[in-house]
Amino acid sequence: MNRPSAYHRGLWIGLAIIASFICIALLSMMPWMSDPTTIRVAERMRAPSFEHWLGTDQIGRDLLGLTMRGTIASLLVAIGAVTIGVGIGVPMGIVASARENWFSQVIMRANDFIFAFPALVTAILLHDTVGSGIQNAILAIGIFNIPVFARVTFNRSQSIWTLDFIKASRLTGRKDLSIAMLHVLPLILGTIIVQATIQLGLGILAEAGLSYIGLGVTPPMPSWGRMLNEAQTLIGIAPRLVLVPGFAIVLAVLGFTLLGDALSEWIDPRKGRG
């Protein structure tokens, strides 16, 4: 296909960034890598050197190793939350869009209700039952994702249900469920993938936010958000402690956003070309 290069570039840059982060996450788990969570108080606040490329933090952990290992928490939370959102939100959206009745109203209003709670509030509410930790972050962001996917699915499939080939399909004796699986879902798959990519980026940002205020990933598991929290009093002395995890967050979010935008233009060329 002959497409303009502007979003081709976005697609490849986004993919490259995401692939690098996945490689970094895998690399940080390799057995020959030294454990970045090891505390060596004697070596604290070292400037970058050959041994510690980005130096060490206030309790002597290797900053590069911590940041690399932090990728795992970010990706796990983002992927887990999107799985929850897609797994529950998409079926809800399709069911609600199939027919106009009280049931679909209930589903969509319930989603509006959940949508009113930011992930942060959900995380605080869940804190008592689930406790802080990676599962709390996944659940809180995941719950926030449900109405996002439910709405996208609802809006896209609502117009498809009214198309004539759906009526023709009904006349052949098919029921709602099989029409949803055969006709509707394949046609909205692209939109869901785009939304998933965007939500992955937002999930990384939300994980950093929750961990920053202590509602997300708990020690000793490294997380970019908590690294920021721990370094905030040292910003004047060693700015690298803030800049490195901060840069990692920005880059990861940028990667998913670029990919999401490029994919959505691919699927709906009207957005990109006049």
Binding site: L163, D164, F165, A168, G173
Partner: peptide, 17 residues
Amino acid sequence: CPVQMVFQDPSGSLNPR
């Protein structure tokens, strides 16, 4: 068998995929 139907807009009456 049920009554079958043909619609106005041929592009909307066939699944594009």
